[in-house]
Amino acid sequence: MAPKHCGLCQDARAILKRPKTGQQICKDCFFYVFEEEVHNTITEAGLFRPGDRVAIGASGGKDSTVLAYVMKTLNERYNYGLELFLLSIDEGITGYRDDSLKTVKRNQVQYDMPLKILSYEELYGWTMDRIVSSIGKKNNCTFCGVFRRQALDRGACALKVDHIVTGHNADDIAETVLMNIMRGDIARLGRCTSICTQGEDTIRRSKPFKYAYEKEIVMYAYFKKLDYFSTECIYSPDAYRGHARSFLKDLEAARPSAIIDIIHSGEAFEVKEEIKAAQKTQRTCRRCGYMSSNELCKACTLLEGLERRLRETVISSLLDPPAARLADKMLVLISLIVTVLSRESKIICR
C-alpha cells in the first residue's frame, strides 16, 4: 500500500487512524490534536482556576502516566498556573503495586513533581494482601475500589490540594455507563458521565481524559516513549467490568464511534426530580466522618466486616483444643491488636 498523507497537514506520512473520527494523521499532528482536545475539555468545563493545587492520581499505569505528562505540558503551554502533585495509593499488593510504585517514583523525577504515597495499611490497618488472605479473591475488587476512592480524598487532604484529576478515559466511562445500565443503578448512571464531581465538603475530582480514547492514550505513550507499568493486578479480575469491557471492545471493532456514542447517551439521560428526591441524602459516617449515604460509610462497613471475621478467627482459635500451637494463637492475637491499634492512627481529614 502506498503511504498515506496526513489529513491535517497534508504533508507528513500518516501513522495513525483516529478511532473517534477515522481521520489519518501524522505523528506531530497527532500529538498536537490529542493535547489540544484535552485542553478544550479542560477549558470548556472550566476545571481549574489559576493558583489551584492539583493532585494527579498516579498508579504508574498508562492512563495516569500520560495524564501527568499532558497536564505538565498544558500547564506550561497555556499558563494554567497550577501547582501539580502526584498522589499514589499503595494498596499493599506484593509483586504488583510495589513494582508500579517504582514507575511512579521515576515519574516524580522525570516530571519534577512532588509525590505523596499513602497506603491502605496506614489508613485502614489492612493491606490488600491481608484482605485477600482473609476473604479470598472473590469480591476483593469491591474492597479495593471503595478504599481507593476514600484514600485519594484523604491523600489530597494531606497534600492540601483543591482538586484531584484521574486518568479515567473515554473507554472507562463508556464501560461504566454500560455497567450502570445493566445493574439498574440510576443514581450512578446520572453522575458517571460528569467530568467533575464534588461531594459536600470533599475535594473536587475530575477526568480530563473523559473524551480521550484508550487507543490514542496508548499510542501517545508509545510514540512519546513514556515510562509506564503494565501488569494485570494479581488479584484481578473484576469479572463484571471485564465483560462490559470485552463487549465494548467488540463494539469498537465494528464501529469505532461506539465509545463516544455511549458516553453521549449517558450524558443525555436525565433523572427525574422525584426520583432524585427519593434517593438517599448525604450525611457523614459515624465512625470516620467521611461522606456517606448511610450511618456508616462504605469503607467502614467493609472494615467492620473484616474485623468481625478476624475476631471470630481469634475466638475460635483460642477455644481450639490444646492441639493448636500456642505460637499460632499468639500470632492471631497480635494481628488483631495491630489492626485495632492502626485504626486509631488513621488519618482523618476534617
Binding site: M1, K4, R13, A14, I15, L16, K17, Q24, S59, G61, K62, D63, S64, T65, G167, N169, E214, K215, I217, V218, M219, Y222, F223, S230, T231, E232, C233, S236, R245, K249
Partner: peptide, 29 residues
C-alpha cells in the same frame, strides 16, 4: 511504527526487515 489500520490490517504483506509491534491496551491504568 504505523497503525496497521492504515496498512490493510491482517492483509498487509510482510517483507524482510519489517518491525511489527503488538501492544495490549487491556491492562489497568
Amino acid at each position: 511504527d504505523t497503525d496497521w489500520e492504515l496498512e490493510g490490517e491482517g492483509d498487509y504483506e510482510l517483507k524482510s526487515g519489517d518491525e511489527i509491534v503488538f501492544i495490549s491496551t487491556l491492562h489497568g491504568g
